[in-house]
Simulated assay, not measured.
Amino acid sequence: MAGAELFNRLPEDCISSILSLTSPKDTLSFSLVSSFLRSVASFDFIWQTFLPSDYNQIIDKSVIPLNYSSKKELFVHLCNSILLDGGNKSFALDKSSGKKSYIISAEELSILYGEEPDHWTWKSVPESRFSKVAELKVICKLEVKAKLRTSILSPNTKYGIYFIMKLSDRAFGLNSVPVEISLEIGNRKEVHTAYLDHRNGEKEKQRDQRLPYKRKDGWMEIELGELFNSGDEDEEVRVSLREVKGCHVKGGLVIEGTEVRPKH
């Protein structure tokens, strides 16, 4: 208590400068100490430092106009995720660190034969944040690719990239052989194998082999790879999921998109 009382005696600008050097999580914790600190912890100056430097450009790309009366309120809005670029991307800030994350919709991915109605259907589902997802009808060769630039990510941050998917009730052939998942950035390439369907427990996980697991939003995800964005240069990141062993008939895969988010 004595420490809190001492802190309360500091000038407001001194306290706000200290809080701006911490994190959103720490600042919210400080605001619980006293009504005085709660008032200081809401200063725009502090929350401006927690917002990404390009937050104005991000706001301009928002599908729905954002209404906010303070930088703290804006930060909270962005933590709840917003749709960008005509609804083809989802953007959010990590509420504890302020780091950026994105989800790229299926419509922004390169899906082999994705425009062929005999192979894929595009439809709306209530559980998706996007207007359309891609559902595989039937195909022999599966290949999905995505690209992004490191300049859109937070600097000095380790990221994971994830393939977001589901299996329909009619899914078949997706547990026959593993798929190859890869991440390329510069001259580095990270390659793993994964099974998209292991519901029957027929496949046991082998070394360096990945399986989908359930997310809080009800979808499934597989980690495609990870990267560290230093922020020193803008590099292209390429990720892919593809079948490389023969040709096997399959169907029932539902794709929502690809997510890149900070790893803690």
Rank of each mutant, 00 (worst) to 15 (best):
residue 175 N to G: 15
residue 175 N to M: 15
residue 175 N to H: 13
residue 175 N to R: 13
residue 176 S to M: 12
residue 176 S to K: 09
residue 176 S to R: 08
residue 177 V to N: 14
residue 177 V to D: 07
residue 177 V to Q: 13
residue 177 V to H: 07
residue 178 P to C: 10
residue 178 P to R: 02
residue 178 P to A: 05
residue 178 P to W: 06
residue 178 P to K: 08
residue 178 P to Y: 03
residue 179 V to K: 01
residue 179 V to C: 15
residue 179 V to N: 08
residue 179 V to S: 10
residue 179 V to W: 00
residue 180 E to H: 02
residue 180 E to L: 07
residue 180 E to C: 03
residue 181 I to C: 00
residue 181 I to F: 02
residue 181 I to A: 00
residue 181 I to V: 14
residue 181 I to Q: 03
residue 181 I to K: 00
residue 181 I to H: 05
residue 181 I to L: 06
residue 182 S to E: 06
residue 182 S to L: 06
residue 182 S to V: 01
residue 182 S to W: 02
residue 182 S to Q: 09
residue 183 L to E: 03
residue 183 L to H: 02
residue 183 L to G: 07
residue 183 L to D: 03
residue 183 L to W: 00
residue 183 L to Y: 01
residue 183 L to C: 10
residue 184 E to I: 10
residue 184 E to T: 12
residue 185 I to R: 15
residue 185 I to K: 09
residue 185 I to S: 11
residue 185 I to G: 10
residue 186 G to I: 09
residue 186 G to M: 04
residue 186 G to Q: 05
residue 186 G to E: 04
residue 186 G to P: 14
residue 187 N to W: 04
residue 187 N to T: 11
residue 187 N to P: 01
residue 187 N to H: 15
residue 187 N to L: 12
residue 188 R to Y: 12
residue 188 R to A: 12
residue 188 R to S: 13
residue 188 R to Q: 15
residue 189 K to L: 14
residue 189 K to Q: 09
residue 189 K to V: 12
residue 189 K to E: 10
residue 189 K to H: 08
residue 189 K to R: 15
residue 190 E to H: 03
residue 190 E to R: 04
residue 190 E to Y: 03
residue 190 E to I: 13
residue 191 V to N: 04
residue 191 V to E: 13
residue 192 H to D: 02
residue 192 H to E: 03
residue 192 H to M: 05
residue 192 H to Q: 07
residue 193 T to Q: 09
residue 193 T to P: 01
residue 193 T to F: 04
residue 193 T to G: 00
residue 193 T to E: 08
residue 194 A to G: 10
residue 194 A to S: 05
residue 194 A to C: 05
residue 194 A to L: 00
residue 195 Y to P: 11
residue 195 Y to Q: 01
residue 195 Y to V: 02
residue 195 Y to M: 11
residue 196 L to T: 03
residue 196 L to W: 02
residue 196 L to Y: 00
residue 196 L to F: 04
residue 197 D to A: 01
residue 197 D to P: 11
residue 197 D to H: 06
residue 197 D to T: 09
residue 197 D to C: 10
residue 198 H to A: 06
residue 198 H to E: 05
residue 198 H to Q: 13
residue 198 H to V: 15
residue 199 R to H: 07
residue 199 R to G: 03
residue 199 R to E: 07
residue 199 R to N: 03
residue 200 N to R: 12
residue 200 N to H: 12
residue 200 N to E: 12
residue 200 N to Y: 10
residue 202 E to Y: 08
residue 202 E to C: 06
residue 202 E to K: 06
residue 203 K to I: 14
residue 203 K to E: 10
residue 203 K to D: 03
residue 203 K to T: 09
residue 204 E to H: 05
residue 204 E to T: 14
residue 204 E to Y: 05
residue 204 E to G: 13
residue 204 E to V: 11
residue 204 E to P: 02
residue 205 K to D: 00
residue 205 K to P: 00
residue 205 K to T: 04
residue 206 Q to V: 01
residue 206 Q to F: 07
residue 206 Q to K: 15
residue 206 Q to H: 11
